[in-house]
């Protein structure tokens, strides 16, 4: 398939996924409302922790409102809920067979299905940033100078998270109820990645353990890139780590898919 044909085909899948998602416009209103509630709750907690202090655990008090909003953007921008459930259901009920019969590259299809519905969420996030920046408390939110490192780190976060979700989908070949892994990641990623509370606030032993996992790369990395608190050369180092994780997951996913399809064929019919 030529690159042009590839882009046309999967661009259409992306547009279809976007159109389907836009049928449920109210869910975006709920997303905004949910974000407002989270901002209120988190700011309330941070206000009590700071209690007049100018800095706690390496995070300056004036960066706290930006930290809370960026955390929401990073989590809601990368989390996939319905897609993983749907894909594992397709494996379970046998409708996944169409990907075996039709000339579809499944990872590309999965990505198009993921990106399409996320476009309005990202747009909403951008609007939220622009609106909040008008308020004095949020004047430190994403200054222009931090935009490029943040977007770069965020793109790597999306790649990494979605490779993780794709891995869960492939695990569906062996574990029929693998959806719970996706829910567990979505529930835990905030605190374990450092996008709900700063990673430096967690107990040191846990932080050391987490550094051997991809979690800090999908929360702490884009967060600190946006806040401008990365040390010189740290962005490059974390980006290389992210790319290494993505490459490793691509290989693992390739193996899982190949072996999974063999297992899947065993069900036959």
């Amino acid at each position: 398939m030529s690159l042009r044909a590839y882009l046309r085909a999967y661009g259409q899948v992306l547009r279809n996924a976007l159109a389907t998602d836009m049928e449920y416009r109210t869910s975006y209103m709920i997303l905004v409302f949910s974000s407002a509630v989270t901002i209120i709750m988190e700011l309330a907690l941070f206000r009590q922790v700071y209690d007049g202090r100018s800095e706690v655990g390496g995070l300056a008090v004036e960066l706290v409102p930006s930290f809370v909003v960026l955390g929401i953007l990073i989590r809601s921008g990368s989390a996939l809920w319905g897609l993983v459930y749907e894909a594992i259901d397709q494996i379970r009920d046998g409708s996944f067979r169409r990907f075996l019969l039709q000339p579809i590259h499944y990872p590309s299809y999965f990505w198009a299905q993921a990106i399409g519905p996320k476009l309005p969420t990202w747009t909403l996030g951008l609007i939220l940033v622009l609106v909040l920046k008008q308020f004095p408390d949020f004047r430190n939110l994403l200054p222009l100078g931090h935009l490029a490192p943040f977007l770069g780190a965020l793109a790597l976060t999306f790649f990494l998270m979605w490779q993780l979700y794709l891995m869960i989908v492939y695990l569906g070949f062996w574990i029929e109820e693998a959806q719970f892994l996706s829910t567990a990641i979505n529930v835990g990623v905030g605190v374990f990645s450092g996008s709900l509370v700063p990673l430096a606030w967690l107990p040191p032993g846990l932080v050391t353990f987490l550094k051997f996992t991809p979690f800090p790369l999908v929360g702490d990395f884009p967060m600190r890139a946006a806040l401008g608190t990365l040390a010189a050369g740290e962005w490059k180092q974390l980006a290389i780590q992210s790319i290494a994780w993505i490459a490793a997951m691509c290989v693992i996913n390739g193996v899982l898919k190949a072996r999974g399809l063999k297992t899947y064929e065993a069900f036959g019919g």
Partner: peptide, 14 residues
Amino acid sequence: ASQLLTFVAAYRFT
């Protein structure tokens, strides 16, 4: 764990 850790983190500093 995520609920508890949020507060464990907060109480490390107060």
